[in-house]
Structure formats: C-alpha cells, structure tokens
Write a protein that binds this DNA or RNA. Sequence first.
DNA 1: GTAACCTACAACCTAATGGTTGTAGTATCG
DNA 2: CGATACTACAACCATTAGGTTGTAGGTTAC
Lengths: 116, 116
Amino acid sequence: MVVVSLSPERVDLVFHALADATRRDIVEAAMGGELSVSALGRRYPISLTAVQKHVAVLERAGLVRRRRLGREQLVCTDMDAVRDASRLLDRLEVLWRDRLDRFASVLADEPAGDPT
Amino acid sequence: MVVVSLSPERVDLVFHALADATRRDIVEAAMGGELSVSALGRRYPISLTAVQKHVAVLERAGLVRRRRLGREQLVCTDMDAVRDASRLLDRLEVLWRDRLDRFASVLADEPAGDPT
DNA sequence: GTAACCTACAACCTAATGGTTGTAGTATCG
DNA sequence: CGATACTACAACCATTAGGTTGTAGGTTAC
C-alpha cells in the first residue's frame, strides 16, 4: 500500500487550487499535456494574465507541470497529484468506518447492562 | 451506479472548505457528531468566533450539519458529502483512463502509416 | 432570580484572491 | 531585419478570507 504523505500546507494548496471552476477545467483540459498557456487562454472569457495566474496556482499545488517548447509553455496535469488528493478524502472515509467498527464491537462485547 | 451531480458552485464551496487545516480537523473531529461548537473551540488556539466561522463555512459547503441541543450546538460531519467530494476526483481519473484507452485503440487500428 | 455558559452577530483590520491594463522580453516566421 | 506570437511581470483595484474584540440573547445550574 502506498502511503500518501502530503504536508498540510501542500494539502491547503491542492484544495485551494481545486476550489475554482476555471482551474478545475484547466486540470481536465491539460490531462493531454499538449496545451500551451495561450491555447488555454482562448478557452475562457478572461485575460491571458488571469489564466497565467490560474496555471501558477495549479503549479504551486503540484497539480500541473509546465515545460517550455520553443516559444510556447506546455501545461500538463500531474495525475498522481490528483490521485493523492482523492486518497486524502478516502482516508477520512476509512477513519469513519474504523470508528463505526470499534463502536459496533463495543456494543457486541457489552450486549446490555453495566460493564462493571 | 450513483451519479454525483453537485453544482459547480457547490464544488467550489466544498473544496474551499477543505483548503484549511483547521476546517479539515473539524471535519475529522465531528465525524462522531457529538461535539459542540465551544468544545471544538477548546481544540484550537483561536477565538470562538473564528471557530464559528469555520463551522459556518463547512456548513455552507454541506460537509457538516448542526443541531441544537439545549444551549449547545452539536456539529456533525456529513460523510455522504465527503464521499461525493472524493468521487469528484475519482471522476477525473476515470476521464484520464478513458482518454488513454481511446488513444491506445487508435494506435491499435492504425499500426503504422497513413490511414487514407 | 442571578450567575455562568454557549451561541450569535456586528464592526473592524490585514492579507490574500481574482481580475484588470500596460510594458517588456524572447522566439518564430517572412 | 521587422513583424508577430507567446510569455512574463509590475501595478493597481475590488472583493473575500480569516482573524480579532465587543455586545447581546437564550439556557442551564445554583
């Protein structure tokens, strides 16, 4: 089993990056890894600078990487980072299930009445 | 299969709510559903008002519910909402896998050379 | 009833977000 | 070379976030 160990600060960045519809769309669009920043810019009714900032936010969160190709800057989604984020939430569910199990076992050990 | 259909605005709220370590801790602590706001307040080195605001953010995102019990306000995490958030990220992975599959099948149909 | 406790809310402050325009550097094309 | 396309960055603006203090309303305990 792979242990997901992201620092809390990094988790902050990841969730914050995903808390914007434009950025989530960029993540989706850049899964192919062949879109330049200006190509992304044409998809949205905002300035190119705004798109650059969105990409920068995604990059700080590690959800996206950039590589230079000639005069273009190709954006590429890091699917591992997406998976890590998903597992962070799975972990909460596991925690929850564990607590339910422990609670259930306590009930089983003491069917009715005072334990002392 | 259950279709997760959260509005984009709701998704914004959910991810934004999770983009803070204190709030993530509240979600985890309130999985039992028996913590009052003031009990939560004792866990963190910030004012009670700040904790109230965090709980309000979580509530707006639907990650947490509150119910009044006497003079207390008991906070309870909605695990279904956590699951929904997790599935949103899973969906990205599925999309990604689909694209890889489609790409692979194109390669299989046209092993080498011009299709026309 | 009064004191203590839990909550609610308004007002305020500072820093960060998300957006803009403008200017300038760097590649590619003709 | 000059023109065009892609990117980078500074400066600015409005709004929101996250925090504070202070005041006030219900609830429980004594």
